[in-house]
Design a protein around this nucleic acid. Sequence first.
DNA 1: TTGACATATTCCCATATGGGAATATATGAG
DNA 2: CTCATATATTCCCATATGGGAATATGTCAA
Lengths: 125, 125
Amino acid sequence: MPPAPTTADVFNAIAGPRRRQIVELLERRGALAVGTLVVTLGLPQPAVSKHLGVLRKVGVVAVIKQGKQRVYYLEAEKLKAVHDWVKAFEELWGHQLDRIKERAEHRAREQSESPAPLKPRKGQS
Amino acid sequence: MPPAPTTADVFNAIAGPRRRQIVELLERRGALAVGTLVVTLGLPQPAVSKHLGVLRKVGVVAVIKQGKQRVYYLEAEKLKAVHDWVKAFEELWGHQLDRIKERAEHRAREQSESPAPLKPRKGQS
DNA sequence: TTGACATATTCCCATATGGGAATATATGAG
DNA sequence: CTCATATATTCCCATATGGGAATATGTCAA
């Protein structure tokens, strides 16, 4: 039973710094062949190809075959999902945090659930 | 040599769906004790505590000791980093993508670097 | 003190990951 | 066809990860 498929979504794709670097490069320089990324990142070519594979699988980048080269470019709409998700918390970081702490202390009164998944220790004597 | 410390930043923290779920819950319901999260997520308590540990380590959540309970709340400013990063690509998903593809094909002319990290195959005769 | 409750920590295991090394595939040149 | 270039794929290894199970820590009540 796969309760939570961790991988293969946009959030996971941009979790790695290297992959974020690639995305930034593709944004600043428009569209780049693998070889250019290899030189720029200073990574071995297979590593770059694998990162590009992850980004491509989730649709953050796409490829054009240009002769023997593969030119990668950004598909920025896929990043919009991330943008939208974080945007939901935008209003929060405008408010002073102390209020949040107060709210935490206030609402803590209501926290008294009995988590069923807790197994009894071993049966008392 | 750690060329790129993959872990322990905000991007990595929200990469897991479970952790994103926790963040969403804390936003919608304000501040929650671990037990509440355990019940809501249907995860065993240790798992929840570990996820909270990851989020806390990067500062996305914080804790208040409330009696025996630990009440967690959001520190939304940490999410701002993600917001800012994605925002840099905001303008891109407003433009039609065909132009980007054209641009890719256009710029592909300039892609002719010689990746040094490529080892010669076996030495030609 | 002891005991119950709430949470954290540790150990274990299966899987995913990044990068290195080697090899395979594809495409163009001749 | 063969060869070289450009990239992708595979194998391997060390490390990280999520979740289960068990245990430890902390805090309150009596």
